[in-house]
Amino acid sequence: MYLYVKAVHVFAVVLLISGMLAMAFALRILAIMPGDMAARRLGEYLLRWDGLVTTPALAVVWMAGLTMAFGAGWTSSSWLLLKLVPAAFLTGMHLFQGSALKRFLQSRRSIALYRRAPIAILLAFAAVDWLAIAKPF
């Protein structure tokens, strides 16, 4: 059963990270070209994608991850507790990205805060990935 949950978890992580990176790049594009209608349509499309795919993938990531942690008895492992920090950061980043895109589509306010979002997402994901695979402590 563990391998099936792990497969679902990995698939959901791929969907989540790809959706978050797409949102991050869309926010950068919209900051550069706030009046462009094609960029605006991209933002609207990504907002729908986020609601249909990325947000449910986030829920599945957490549910499958917690299922694996409790099932394998890792709840007191130091590496798992440390892994929760970048995982929580990614969850928060997802929430902030969605709200920033909604705000932009409604008011066209600048979103320069998200210029570094793609690298932050990749670094957090790399930390989660390393801790999950290496289990260093």
Rank of each mutant, 00 (worst) to 15 (best):
M63A: 15
R115Q: 13
L101F: 03
S77H: 12
V10M: 11
A120L: 15
A69T: 14
M23Q: 11
D129Y: 14
A127Y: 01
T75C: 04
M68L: 15
T55C: 04
A22M: 13
A12H: 03
P86Q: 05
W49T: 04
A39S: 14
G35M: 12
L81R: 14
L123M: 13
I29S: 09
Y114E: 03
I111A: 12
A117V: 03
M23F: 08
A39K: 09
L58P: 00
R115E: 11
V85T: 10
I29E: 14
A100N: 03
W130L: 13
A100V: 02
A12P: 02
G35R: 14
W79M: 09
A57K: 04
M93Y: 10
Q106G: 04
S78N: 09
R28E: 08
G92A: 06
W49C: 07
V10H: 06
L123I: 13
Y4G: 10
R48W: 12
G19P: 05
L80P: 06
V53M: 10
T75K: 07
L58C: 06
G98T: 03
F137R: 07
A117P: 00
A72N: 10
A126V: 09
A31L: 05
A124E: 04
K135C: 08
M1T: 11
S18H: 04
E44I: 01
V61M: 07
T54R: 07
V128I: 15
P86Y: 06
L95G: 14
V8E: 01
M1R: 11
Y2L: 09
Q97S: 11
R41S: 12
K102W: 00
M37D: 11
G43K: 05
S78W: 13
S18D: 02
R48G: 09
T91L: 13
L16P: 00
F25Y: 15
I17R: 01
L82I: 08
A69Q: 02
F70S: 01
M23H: 08
A87H: 00
L131E: 08
S110H: 12
W79E: 08
F137P: 05
L66F: 14
W74L: 05
R40L: 05
H9F: 01
Y45T: 13
A117S: 13
R109M: 12
L3R: 05
A24C: 03
R103S: 10
M33H: 15
I17E: 01
P34N: 09
D36Y: 10
G71S: 08
A117G: 00
A132S: 14
R109T: 12
V8L: 14
A72R: 14
A31K: 08
W130C: 06
A64G: 05
A126G: 11
A57F: 06
R108Y: 09
L82M: 11
